[in-house]
Design a protein around this nucleic acid. Structure first.
Length: 262
DNA sequence: AGACGATGCGGAC
DNA sequence: TCCGCCTCGTCTT
């Protein structure tokens, strides 16, 4: 579920449903101890930064949510049913109920904590204006790295919001060997990845799912037609068996024909 | 019914 | 580099 597109979509939805009015708040599971202190406060805004969500409440209170690998939201219209499973945080008004379960983080964040969080995130393609060039800071950071470009793309301090699916699909679309050292990636290739990331993430937010192939009607694509290499047995474009490897604990997928080593 | 792996990340070693 | 988190869809038995 959660790469940057999911987080931005949740921010947009939760803002539309809850912002500008009081919301009830509780922690059915009990592990979000501050939930009760927020009960009845007005939710003023919801923001997304990379894979992080910030919920703003009246009185300058901020809640930080990070879904991690397992976290998910369940949404109900109107008054929700009894919590299903372990619900860390339930937020609701008369029209919607949202249950958060399994997050890596669900916590009050004070201003220094928020500054520290945002300081360790690189630029988020979804927060930057659409551009044909990558941020200079990203380019300079990559120049200092000899790790594979595939590892760099998952480093949230370099670029915030990409996960394992977008990494695989972006490198495939750019026809780049995932093991190319980051400091050997030519600037035009970085710019191509950046602008492509902006486009794909925006589609992801709109459709609430990752679609990484070009299509006049991306919303109609079947599951097996949306991705070219991620978790596939063969490359969607050329039918070559997809290569897999473990790169610092994550499975890397690529097509050795479309993305040859130089 | 049970095993396994997953779109993530921090901390221990 | 590995483990834990704490959930669920998919696959195997």
């Amino acid at each position: 579920m959660p790469e940057g597109h999911t987080i931005h979509r949740r921010a947009r939805d939760h803002r539309a449903w809850f912002a500008g009015q009081p919301a009830s708040s509780c922690s059915p599971q009990g592990r979000f101890g501050d939930a009760d202190a927020l009960d009845g406060l007005e939710l003023t805004d919801v923001e997304a930064f990379g894979k992080h969500l910030l919920y703003r409440f009246e009185g300058d209170l901020t809640v930080h949510v990070h879904l991690g690998l397992f976290g998910r939201f369940r949404t109900y219209r109107g008054v929700g049913p009894p919590p299903r499973g372990q619900v860390r945080w339930r937020i609701a008004n008369e029209s919607r109920t949202v249950d958060l379960s399994g997050p890596t983080a669900c916590e009050r964040l004070d201003p220094p904590g928020e500054r520290a969080l945002l300081a360790r995130l690189g630029p988020d393609p979804l927060r930057e204006p659409a551009r044909s060039t990558a941020p200079e800071s990203l380019w300079r950071a990559l120049q200092r790295r000899r790790t594979p470009i595939a590892a760099a793309l998952l480093d949230q301090a370099l670029i915030a919001g990409l996960g394992n699916v977008y990494r695989a699909e972006l490198l495939h679309r750019a026809q780049i060997d995932p093991y190319l050292p980051a400091n050997q990636l030519p600037r035009p290739q970085l710019d191509a990845i950046w602008s492509d990331a902006q486009a794909l993430l925006a589609i992801g937010v709109r459709l609430d799912r990752i679609v990484a192939v070009d299509s006049p009607s991306p919303s109609k694509l079947r599951r097996a037609e949306r991705l070219s290499v991620y978790r596939r047995s063969t490359c969607l474009r050329c039918d070559t068996p997809v290569s897999r490897a473990n790169l610092s604990g994550r499975t890397l997928y690529w097509c050795s024909t479309c993305q040859p080593a130089r």
